[in-house]
């Protein structure tokens, strides 16, 4: 199966603002890598269940206890922009 990627669409989904040159270069590399992955697609796996997690675990529950939380200042001081105890961002709507 030849791999044909709409790389601009993928970059937009990934929220990466890439230039035309970058898109072209990454697009070619991805096509090479995915052709390599074709081996996997050719493997017959009818009736094989997918593994999403290596160990047979079920939901782990911890005791519902109050514990200490981080002071807001300890992480707001590391934010690119913060105001009045909140993260500050540019406008959200066009």
């Amino acid at each position: 199966m030849p791999v044909d990627i709409d790389i601009a669409k993928v970059a937009n989904l990934a929220r990466l603002a890439l230039s035309e040159e970058e898109l072209a270069a990454y697009g070619t590399q991805l096509e090479d890598i995915l052709e390599h992955a074709e081996r996997v697609q050719a493997l017959p796996t009818d009736g094989v269940e997918p593994t999403s997690h290596p160990l047979p675990m079920v939901n782990g529950f911890r005791p519902d206890e109050r514990t200490e939380s981080l002071e807001p200042e300890s992480f707001l001081s590391e934010a690119p922009d913060a105001e009045d105890g909140q993260f500050r961002v540019p406008r959200i709507l066009e």
């Binding site: 990934a14 929220r15 990466l16 603002a17 890439l18 934010a79 690119p80 961002v89 959200i92």
Partner: peptide
């Protein structure tokens, strides 16, 4: 670019543009 790490200095457009530029 919201809670920690690098935020672009080219702040044009919306928060979503800021995110895509900061990540790139």
């Amino acid at each position: 670019g919201v809670r920690y790490g690098h935020r672009t200095e080219h702040l044009e457009g919306t928060t979503e543009d800021m995110m895509a530029m900061s990540r790139a």
